Amino acid sequence: MLVFILNAGSSSLKYQLMNPVNKETLAVGICERIGIDGALKHEYGDDKKLKIESDLPTHKEAIELVLKTLTEGEGKVIDSIDDIEAIGHRAVHGGEEFAGSVMVSEKVINKMKELIPLAPLHNPANIMGMEICQELMPGKPNVAVFDTAFHQTMPDYAYMYALPYDQYTKNGVRKYGFHGTSHFFVSNEAAKRLDKKHNTRIIVCHLGNGSSVSAVFDGKCIDTSMGLTPVQGLMMGTRAGDIGAGAIQYMMETEGWDIKEMLDVLNKKSGIVGISGKSSDLREVLEGMEAGDERCRLAVDMIAYRIKQYVGSYAAALDGVDALCFTGGIGENAAIIREKVCAGLDYMGLNIDPVKNNKRSGEARDISTNGSAGRIFVIPTNEEYVIANDTYKIVKGIE
């Protein structure tokens, strides 16, 4: 079964064509700068690459170009759009309405529209992608896979904020969490690698430009670091993460910022780029640290310290830890961050092996010492496979 996987952003569109049964990926790509000047980057076959410059005034033209590229010319991987059996969509925010992936219907789209205030940048683009695919590929099933769904198993005492209760009942103000498909995939892969098959206690650190940590007990999320929006939690590429409300008020008053300006600072000018003053890309910050830049050193230490704080608190919430997992661009590639996070965690039975940790590999691996009571894993995430597999199961009616 071939599934067309779509991740529609406000000005970009990522896609893959995958067979979830054998995990074969036929093509992967992205349309960038939609509405500006437009370009498609398409990868297929044995590391073949194709770039097409094209006017892409809207997402519709972008999806049309992707489908044409998949079926015609140099980048062709299928004979016809008819070869695509279903479309799986990344959907950012499902609120409390969606605790799992669902077949897209008018009712689902209307409910997602109601949730737009919770994800004003993402949900409109996700909905647009669904509606365009329904138009361009009529009759083919579309499935929505929500970033927030995996975290819907959190208990109320974990997801509630200590605000007036009517803010929850009237406005849905609570912790939702994101990166759910990644946390699901990695925690599931980690569980397979443990000798213990029940009551597993797994902490997943999804670390990239956006980062989050989750505590997973027996396959179910019991807590996660991101909140109502993705700005809460860890220090990230450009996001501040956890910060006291009083600091926000103080900055707004002293700088004369309105709420939009404040949110712009919290989401786009803080985190790694805000502290280092150099870049939101950790690779450049690590180069700066090695060259003696103190602000880069501070950024690296802050990243690791804040991850470590969450690991400690989630180990307490889980009453111990069987596996600590690292994934995402930083989690998979930054050995120094893993080293700093794991330093001193031997008291909870986690001992990192420095040789294994510094060995680069694109494969899932155990980087703990042989005598470590808990395991430390590096597991490359595969969110696209989760979307494709959920789509396959829903379309085929598989529980």
Rank of each mutant, 00 (worst) to 15 (best):
S361T: 15
I330G: 10
D47H: 15
Y392Q: 06
G95C: 02
D264Q: 14
L318H: 14
N188C: 00
K359M: 06
L67C: 14
S313N: 12
D242K: 02
D346K: 10
N358G: 15
P141W: 02
S187V: 01
I81V: 15
D79S: 07
S279K: 01
L13M: 12
I127A: 08
G94M: 07
L26G: 02
Q309G: 01
G246S: 14
T25G: 01
F185A: 01
S80Q: 03
I272P: 04
I34R: 08
A323F: 08
Y385T: 03
L50C: 06
D37K: 14
L234K: 12
L228W: 08
G75L: 03
E290G: 00
K49D: 04
K60Y: 01
M236A: 02
K68E: 15
E294N: 14
P117T: 11
A245S: 13
S214D: 01
K396E: 15
L67R: 11
L298P: 08
K340W: 08
I84W: 11
L40K: 01
G271C: 03
L234M: 13
E255G: 05
G328S: 00
S54K: 08
S80H: 03
L194G: 06
A291Y: 01
K192Q: 07
Y168V: 02
R193G: 07
A299C: 13
E114R: 09
R360V: 15
G75H: 03
S187P: 11
I367C: 10
V341Q: 11
N351C: 07
D83H: 12
D55V: 10
D346W: 03
D319V: 00
K278S: 10
I394H: 01
Q16K: 11
I394V: 09
H179V: 06
K68N: 14
W257P: 07
Q152C: 07
K278C: 09
I243F: 00
L2E: 10
V28G: 03
G397S: 10
S211K: 01
Y347L: 12
T169P: 07
D195H: 00
I84N: 08
S187L: 00
F326G: 02
I109D: 13
I303W: 08
N370Y: 07
M235P: 04
L263A: 09
N123C: 03
P354F: 11
Y305L: 12
I303G: 05
C296R: 08
A8K: 06
M289Y: 05
A158Q: 12
E332C: 09
H42L: 09
I81T: 15
H42C: 00
S187M: 00
G362I: 10
A191R: 09
A334K: 02
G95P: 02
F150A: 04
Y347Q: 12
I337V: 13
I398C: 06
L17N: 10
A334Q: 06
K51R: 08
K278N: 03
M262H: 01
G329V: 07
I30Q: 12
P141A: 04
C325K: 01
E64V: 12
